[in-house]
């Protein structure tokens, strides 16, 4: 990913000065789309090989990489303030608690 060179040069106030949000160079969006499509192809390709229990773990990891770059760049999360980050992270944490709780509870139900 070539977004690194933008990180240092772009501070929080963008090139337009009076604009509201952070302006990301259009080339970054194109790179992100390319990466997302390549990752989709990888997901489909890996699923054709049987790794047993590892298939779902690998698939979820690749999906999480995709979701992260969608959030960071398409949704501009990379440039948002800590409040927005809290709102983005809390549901993921709650979801992990829910799934962990259900799976811990399940063996004692029968």
């Amino acid at each position: 990913m070539s977004h690194h060179e933008h990180n240092e040069t772009d501070s929080h106030d963008n090139s337009h000065g009076n604009g509201l949000g952070h302006i990301i160079p259009k080339s970054v969006y194109a790179l992100v789309l390319g990466a997302l499509i390549i990752l989709t192809v990888i997901t489909v390709a890996i699923a054709q090989v049987d790794f047993g229990n590892w298939n779902i773990i690998v698939a979820m990891l690749v999906s999480s990489v995709k979701a992260t770059i969608v959030a960071l760049f398409f949704m501009h999360l990379k440039y948002e303030d800590p409040f927005t980050w809290i709102y983005a992270v809390i549901p993921i944490f709650l979801l992990i608690v829910l799934i962990a709780g259900v799976f811990i509870d399940n063996p004692f139900r029968y």
Binding site: G21, F83, L95, I99, F103
Partner: peptide, 28 residues
């Protein structure tokens, strides 16, 4: 602008949890 955007993120958080219940059911 900031308040509207933050409000949307809060709504998206509830959306993730709405689908999260189904993801949890699927996992189980």
């Amino acid at each position: 602008y900031g308040a509207a955007k933050l409000g949307m993120w809060l709504f998206l958080a509830t959306e993730i949890l709405l689908f999260g219940g189904l993801f949890c059911a699927f996992a189980l």
